[in-house]
């Protein structure tokens, strides 16, 4: 579904590349975590998939198409196949829940009938039935993120990109959001989620791709948040508990400011 072939992205010739020779493939229906400290290239990865940026070298394939070869007037069509969710929700403050979700259909010219049909279904899927006419400021953070997810999936994209979707939410709310993303994934959508939240990654046991300084340093089928600290016991089983203290200490270091960084704002 998403394939990177030796992709390098350089923003500024003088500094090191944001992505440096990335080779990886994410299959249809996968649920993949993208982890790594700030500046490791997670956002650049997502921007390349969205064709917000073009790779400096190497090819990015999304749904079988080389995005560099997609002419600019076809880019909107490409993006219709990709849903995006952000840390800061990005809802329209002057539209209610229904309006925010419907907006994604209106702007691509879907019929009023189809909108009336589809939007309530999706709102129900994210667990917001009965709150269609609330305004965003009348919702909690978790509910706002649910609206954002509903908006991202209402056009039934094949891929859902989530950039720190739980970054502004408390752990309990985050679990709710993850359950929704899981449900979306089970409906067949490929989900790629960039995150700093180790608890979530560890509890989900999904594929983990770890980036550091623009390189893939780890790619595990059902991994945990970090491999920097060995958490595998001598007998080969994974045990979280003994490594817990060590891991939390190191993760906290990279997480302290991360949820508030704004490098993704442009996206």
């Amino acid at each position: 579904m998403i394939r990177f072939e030796n992709v390098t992205k350089v923003y500024d010739q003088k500094s090191r590349p944001a992505l440096d020779g990335i080779d990886l493939e994410i299959d249809r229906g996968d649920f993949t975590f993208l982890v790594g400290p700030s500046g490791s290239g997670k956002s650049t990865f997502l921007r390349l998939v969205l064709r917000e940026e073009r790779s400096s070298s190497g090819d990015v394939y999304v749904a079988g198409k080389n995005v560099a070869r997609v002419p600019s007037w076809r880019v909107p069509r490409l993006r219709r196949g990709i849903g995006v969710v952000f840390q800061d929700f990005r809802l329209l403050p002057n539209k209610d829940v229904f309006g925010n979700v419907a907006f994604a259909m209106q702007v691509i010219g879907k019929s009023r009938y189809l909108i009336r049909e589809t939007v309530p279904e999706v709102i129900k899927l994210v667990g917001l039935e009965g709150k269609e006419h609330r305004m965003p400021h009348e919702l909690s953070g978790g509910e706002q993120q649910r609206v954002a997810i509903a908006r991202a999936i209402v056009n039934k994209p094949g891929i859902l990109l989530a950039d720190e979707p739980t970054g502004n939410l408390d752990p309990a709310t985050s679990v709710g959001i993850m359950n929704i993303l899981d449900k979306v994934n089970q409906n067949g959508t490929t989900v790629v989620m960039a995150t700093h939240d180790d608890d979530i990654v560890n509890s989900m046991r999904r594929r983990v791709i770890e980036l550091a300084d623009g390189r893939v340093v780890r790619d595990e089928k059902s991994g945990e948040y970090t491999a920097m600290i060995p958490v595998v016991n001598a007998d080969g089983t994974r045990e979280l508990k003994p490594a817990g203290e060590v891991r939390v200490a190191s993760a906290a270091g990279s997480q302290a400011i991360a949820p508030f960084d704004s490098e993704e704002d442009e996206l």
Partner: peptide, 14 residues
């Protein structure tokens, strides 16, 4: 609005 429109694939014209 325009940021969201872009992301959900609204055409340049719209």
């Amino acid at each position: 609005e325009t940021g969201i429109m872009r992301l959900v694939g609204a055409s340049k014209l719209v």
